[in-house]
C-alpha cells in the first residue's frame, strides 16, 4: 500500500516539479518522498523507479502519439536505435534509474525510528 502510495505521489509531484523546474527536480522529489514515507529500502527504490517511469512514460506518450512518432523516430536514428519505441524505453529507463536511486538514497539516510 505504502509502495503504491509513494509511487503515485512521486509520479504526480515529479510532473508538477518538472513543469516549473529542471529535469533533476524529480530526483529531489524521490529523495524527499522516500525520506518521509517509511518503507523498506528495496521498496523505496522501486517506488522511485516506477513513479518516475510512469511520469516520464506518460508525458513522452502524450507528446509522441499526437506527433505520430515523427520526432521519436528521428531521435532513434540519431542514437542508432532500431525503433522509436526503444528510444522511448531508453528515455524512461534513464529517468527511472535516477528516480529509483534518489528514492533509495532518501530511504538510506532516513533516521531509524
Amino acid at each position: 500500500m505504502r509502495f503504491l502510495f509513494s509511487a503515485i505521489l512521486i509520479a504526480l509531484l515529479s510532473a508538477v516539479a518538472e513543469y516549473f523546474l529542471p529535469w533533476w527536480s524529480m530526483a529531489v522529489v524521490c529523495f524527499i518522498v522516500a525520506l518521509f514515507i517509511n518503507e523498506r529500502k528495496v521498496f523505496a527504490f522501486w517506488s522511485g523507479f516506477c513513479g518516475v517511469a510512469v511520469c516520464w512514460l506518460a508525458v513522452a506518450l502524450w507528446h509522441d502519439i499526437p506527433n505520430e512518432h515523427i520526432l521519436s523516430s528521428r531521435m532513434a536514428i540519431l542514437f542508432h536505435l532500431p525503433g522509436s519505441w526503444l528510444f522511448m524505453a531508453a528515455s524512461v529507463l534513464i529517468g527511472a534509474v535516477v528516480g529509483g536511486l534518489a528514492a533509495l538514497s532518501g530511504a538510506m539516510v532516513r533516521p531509524k525510528r
Binding site: 510532473a15 507528446h63 509522441d64 506527433n67 505520430e68 520526432l71 529517468g95
Partner: peptide, 14 residues
C-alpha cells in the same frame, strides 16, 4: 531525454 522539457517537447502534434 526528459519528456517534460527535453527533446520530447519538440514533438509537434501533427
Amino acid at each position: 531525454l526528459d519528456p517534460m522539457n527535453g527533446c520530447w517537447a519538440n514533438a509537434e502534434p501533427v
